[in-house]
Design a protein around this nucleic acid. Structure first.
Lengths: 297, 297
DNA sequence: CATGGGGTATCTCCTTTAGAGATCGATCGG
DNA sequence: CCGATCGATCTCTAAAGGAGATACCCCATG
């Protein structure tokens, strides 16, 4: 068995057909058939059930498929490892929660880019769940997400601790005022946002029901909606600070255990750690812990 | 890049020469040269420095080598995964501390062998350090060793808790009597035996020096030597029981924290879990916790 | 200093393997 | 029933890989 055979196998399994796999691999169907047959002969078991509209994996095939993927990944990592001369360079795609990006990352990314000019740095926003998925998918090399994650194939490193606070319409004196009548409308950044669950949980603990959740894709939209009295939201206090000082919203602190949320940087445990990512990790870890959190009154 | 090329690369790196690798791979030197050259061209960097007595890895080669090994392992696992029909079968090589084997494994292995008659079960004794090494080397699929191990690429599962006790010549009333004069000769099973360190540590804590350590390869030899007054030893109490009842040795219990030692079963985290090993794990886990530890008076 | 032995690079066959293209049979939907 | 789609098989051709001979390089040795 050979990585080339597994590449063919993987393509057939993914596309569900030998013809389709042939198109994808820029060859003809007869060759795919022959190579699958050779692989099946070697293993001594059928990998696909042939149907009139394509093929389906057998149990053996199901078991083999994850290995085929891992071999392909490992070869890609091997290539990069051999070529990587230790000078950070090449593409580096990092994910981040939008709030972390807004609050913390600009100076870090700027100084990292200055330190490693050969790196093509890209930042992709998302929710914790989306970002974890993307890191596992190998779409991202790493991401800043809400911790703790505790996934067996990811390593995580605590980077920041944020203090969350509730924001409500201006003139609201307390969280209790904002949730009068035992109901509250809440405004969150996106579906699956980690702060949403947290806000719902802490409202539930106070006996407040949440009949409506509104999603807005940008922080500015949230500030605008909260200012207009459409609902309340939960965000890092440092992010609310400037808006609060302008008098656009009211800010309500929470007791420490409810307020504190840690931001961790995750990356794949087994994956090849490129020089670019290693340098990024070192750079951020050094700055993250020494840089004071942004000040607010 | 391809697994076949990496196989050639790995052989050259390991044997330190293209000629030697050619012999190992049952081909001729010219082909090895050509394939290494092709691989170097593809990667765009030299993998070996050519010398008059063979070749040596460059830095790029050093970085590539672990990946070559991992690809080979992964392909072997893939083959097994595809062939494994879920019915435990094939070879299963397990390591164990000699004391655990003597005390615990016979009924477990017997019932497992009856449950999975298609499995060719093999048991290899060794010390904790040797067994961990062998599991990491892929010589063993798993092993019973002294816990905790806490190695990042191994998973461990607690299986037994043993109560250790000191054994000394018959007629010795206490550990203090046995270590009169602040010195003690100790008898251990093998170099690197985990109980040896433990015994030395607990003697050190009592201010007892250990000028001589004797090693004997079998438990019976240890009992004989201790009985003859050559030294003291530390073993699971349940193992000493029968010998003590015969009056051949004296038995001295220890306070719980010093006495208790846990036996864990380890196996590689990332490796393919064969049906045979999975069945073994389930079988042992089920029996280990329900079977009472052997009784002693 | 010449020489031999162990090692790698290169060139030339030659076998084997993989790819391309045509064709056949099976199946399913209209 | 017909055409579209897909997999299996056959043949031909091109490319890759293996074998063998040889050139060259370096070092130890007499």
């Amino acid at each position: 068995m050979d990585s080339a055979e597994l590449r063919v196998f993987e393509a057939v399994a993914r596309t569900g057909g030998m013809k389709r796999a042939a198109d994808e691999l820029h060859t003809v169907q007869s060759n795919i058939t022959a190579r699958i047959k050779a692989l099946e002969d070697e293993l001594g078991c059928a990998l696909f059930e042939r149907h009139s509209r394509g093929v389906a994996l057998t149990h053996s095939g199901e078991r083999l498929l994850p290995y085929a993927r891992r071999v392909a990944w490992l070869l890609a990592d091997a290539r990069r490892a051999a070529r990587d001369e230790g000078i950070p360079g090449g593409p580096l795609t990092i994910g981040s929660l939008e709030t972390t990006a807004a609050l913390r990352l600009s100076p870090l990314l700027a100084s990292y880019a200055a330190l490693c000019p050969e790196v093509d740095l890209a930042l992709r926003p998302g929710t914790t769940a989306e970002l974890i998925e993307a890191v596992l998918d190998r779409t991202l090399e790493g991401a800043f997400v809400c911790g703790p994650v505790a996934h067996p194939s990811l390593t995580e490193r605590a980077m920041f601790v944020e203090e969350l606070a509730v924001l409500a319409a201006p003139g609201i004196g307390s969280i209790e005022t904002a949730t009068q009548g035992g109901i509250a409308r809440i405004v969150v950044l996106r579906r699956g946002c980690s702060y949403r669950q947290r806000l719902e949980a802490l409202l539930a603990q106070r006996g407040v029901a949440v009949p409506r959740v509104m999603e807005f894709g940008t922080l500015e939209a949230i500030f605008g909606c909260v200012a207009a009295g459409l609902g309340i939201s939960l965000l890092p206090r440092a992010l609310i600070g400037p808006v609060w000082r302008e008098g656009r919203v009211s800010l309500h602190t929470l007791p420490a255990p409810e307020a504190e949320v840690s931001t961790v940087f995750i990356h794949r445990r087994e994956a090849y750690l490129s020089s670019a990512l290693r340098a990024f990790l070192d750079h951020v870890a050094e700055r993250a812990l020494t840089t004071p959190s942004p000040r607010y009154p």
